[in-house]
């Protein structure tokens, strides 16, 4: 009787362990609206949180969404605190050296922002530049920006494509100040400690709308080059670890790619993007 009972116990224990192992844990920051953020009660909300649940339904596996500070996002993935990153993380060559990405699910442009009344308003640049394309108009715009940003304090979040761009030398030597979260950047832009800030354009329009502060976008919108190729699901490189764990990571990449295909076909990504961004940012 006891033997039977303990076998049953062992079996159920095994089941819970394997069920846990099959659960996909997804890491997000919860501080980058409208991509991902938290409501007043601390619940994770936003485009990527809803998309994550949708993708999990397509994959047909249980999911858990885990909160993680941005600056520790990639190390936390590698230390297996979770299995996938969905945190507005752009697909860049630099990141691809340490992790791998699914296909992109959404794309955004970056933009500079200032407070109303700044002397950077009315900068004479094209509406948007794609750094991957290059060419005369891009070079001209970068030159205008180099002149405009000289001597200004430019604020951005640590470890982002925006910081990489500012330090790439494309706009000369800029006085960059980096912050742990986009919220902190917004606060210091509003207080006047930052002359100008760089982030996803939607991050500023979202802040302007919610805070009522006169934050306005200036200069061109940026894409390509240091700004990467859209936002995708960040995953561990399967080659980092052989065996079953490595195998599982490789399968996860396939599962996410397939799920994104289906979600795109069904119009789920577009619908969620329009809901959270106000325009179709899906890709």
């Amino acid at each position: 009787m006891i033997k039977k009972f303990s076998i049953g116990l062992l079996f159920s224990l095994f089941l819970t362990i394997s069920a846990n192992a099959d659960k996909i844990r997804i890491g997000t920051e919860g501080a980058y609206p409208p991509w991902n953020s938290k409501d007043a009660s601390g619940k994770l909300i936003g485009f990527e949180v809803e998309l994550a649940w949708a993708l999990c339904r397509y994959i047909g596996q249980q999911c858990e969404i885990v909160e993680q500070d941005w600056d520790g996002m990639i190390p936390a993935l590698q230390m297996r605190k979770f299995d996938a990153i969905m945190a507005g993380m752009s697909i860049t060559d630099e990141r691809k050296k340490v992790i791998t990405f699914s296909q992109g699910y959404a794309d955004e442009v970056a933009s500079l922002a200032v407070m109303k009344g700044s002397d950077l308003e009315g900068m004479d640049t094209p509406e948007g530049i794609n750094l991957s394309l290059g060419g005369g108009s891009v070079n001209k715009a970068l030159k205008t920006l180099t002149g405009a940003l000289a001597g200004k304090t430019v604020c951005t979040q640590t470890g982002t494509i925006h910081q990489n761009f500012l330090e790439s030398g494309d706009v000369g030597k800029v006085n960059v100040r980096t912050y742990k979260t986009q919220d902190d950047v917004n606060l210091d832009l509003a207080s006047g400690r930052c002359d100008v800030a760089l982030a996803a354009a939607v991050a500023f329009t979202d802040y302007a709308e919610k805070s009522g502060k006169p934050v306005i976008l200036v200069g061109p919108t940026f894409s390509g080059g240091a700004f990467g190729n859209g936002v995708g699901v960040g995953l561990r490189q399967a080659s980092q670890l052989g065996g079953t764990l490595g195998e599982r990571d490789a399968q996860l990449l396939n599962k996410f790619n397939k799920a994104i295909d289906q979600a795109r076909k069904d119009g789920v990504i577009s619908r969620l993007a329009i809901k959270h961004f106000g325009f179709d940012a899906s890709m």
Binding site: G72, P75, V98, T158, G159, Y179, D188
Partner: peptide
Amino acid sequence: VTLMDLTGVAKFIISTTFKP
């Protein structure tokens, strides 16, 4: 508060190398 002291620079290096 954005100062690049010992911890600040350490965090900065980690943000580009991902090796804490």
